[in-house]
């Protein structure tokens, strides 16, 4: 490069750097068209989703839906038959993509001949990221293992090993944390701790991919949910999108045909005796219920009770899975 060219080249490089810096940050996880077959079993069939930076995404689904396989494919532990993975803006096949990724496996086991302090030191060294000993001890304190830091893991209970696993996932300054069933061996207190830790991560802008059977946990902490069923994404969206449908329970008497028609005009109605369950439209802005009550009263209906009800994530999940099963049995016929 000649001296005359140098400023121009530097300017071009700076312009390119500015352009890249101006781009929106790449997602923490991006995967597209993931497929995996074990022998004759298609474990994962066309899974695509993403986890934004600082976002908490729950992965839900029945046993054998392919959740753990998808997680292992993201982390390069299981080979991808087809599809692409990007972690923190780097291709998943490049080990460096995992430099800022913390992982708590479903099968959490750590070297039984080491102490928690030594396990964390090992993981910090392997991650290649500078973390002081004091920070490592803070991670142990966060999961409640500060007073067992020097003991061999051989004598640890499953719950304590899972707590250590959480510390391992958090120790090397992660920007993405993948937690596969993080509370499976924990008591209610431990579960509450994990929930607090996940919410703290969210505050710090760390993205979390959480696979859990405890739907209540997912509902409390997650921004978005991806529901897997038989290796495919059965539904995904924010909690508001998935649970947008609200319900109304009405206890009514003297219901005429006109009144039933008025109810049906608002949404789908299920009747059990004198209790009517009405699905409210997702685009309701608070006027549907008072309008309905006013009209029912005008039609001579005696209104005993009006109770709003929200569909839980569990009900929604079961609904989605049952719809899928019904569609499959319909196809089979």
């Amino acid at each position: 490069m000649s001296v005359a060219e140098r400023p121009a080249a530097v300017d071009a490089r700076r312009a390119a750097a500015d352009l890249v810096a101006g781009l929106p940050p790449t997602p923490a996880v991006w995967c597209s068209g993931l497929r995996k077959r074990y022998g004759r079993q298609q474990a994962v069939a066309d899974v695509s989703f993403e986890v934004g930076r600082g976002e908490i995404v729950g992965l839900l689904g029945p046993n054998g839906a392919g959740k753990t396989s998808v997680i292992k494919m993201l982390l390069g532990l299981v080979h991808v038959d087809e599809g692409e993975v990007m972690l923190l803006g780097r291709p998943g096949a490049d080990p460096a993509a995992r430099a800022r990724v913390g992982y708590l496996p479903e099968l959490f086991r750590y070297q039984p001949w080491l102490s928690p302090t030594e396990v964390l030191a090992l993981h910090v060294r392997l991650s290649g990221i500078g973390v002081t000993v004091a920070e490592q001890q803070d991670s142990l304190a966060l999961v409640g293992l500060a007073d067992r830091a020097g003991d061999r893991l051989g004598g640890f209970s499953k719950g304590m090993q899972q707590r250590l696993g959480l510390a391992v996932a958090l120790v090397a300054g992660p920007e993405l944390v993948v937690l596969d069933e993080p509370t499976s061996a924990l008591d209610p207190l431990g579960r509450a701790d994990v929930r607090d830790i996940v919410l703290t991560l969210k505050e710090r802008g760390v993205a979390v991919l959480l696979n859990s059977h405890l739907i209540g946990e997912v509902e409390r902490v997650c921004d978005r949910v991806v529901i897997l069923d038989r290796g495919q994404v059965a539904a995904s969206g924010t909690l508001a999108e998935l649970l947008g449908q609200r319900e109304l329970h009405l206890r009514l008497s003297d219901v005429s045909a006109e009144a039933e028609a008025r109810l049906a005009a608002t949404g789908q109605v299920d009747r059990t005796g004198d209790v009517f369950t009405l699905a409210l439209p997702a685009d309701d802005h608070g006027t549907a219920v008072p309008d309905l009550v006013r009209d029912l009263a005008a039609l001579g209906v005696r209104v005993h009770a009006v109770e709003p009800a929200r569909i839980t994530l569990e009900e929604r999940l079961l609904g989605i899975l049952r719809e899928g099963a019904a569609a499959r049995s319909g196809d089979a016929r």
């Binding site: 982390l75 532990l77 080990p95 995992r98 990724v101 496996p105 086991r109 090992l122 993981h123 996932a169």
Partner: peptide, 14 residues
Amino acid sequence: ESGIVLAVLARPIR
């Protein structure tokens, strides 16, 4: 078999 390797190989190593 035990799963010890999972957390280790999820680190940025070949």
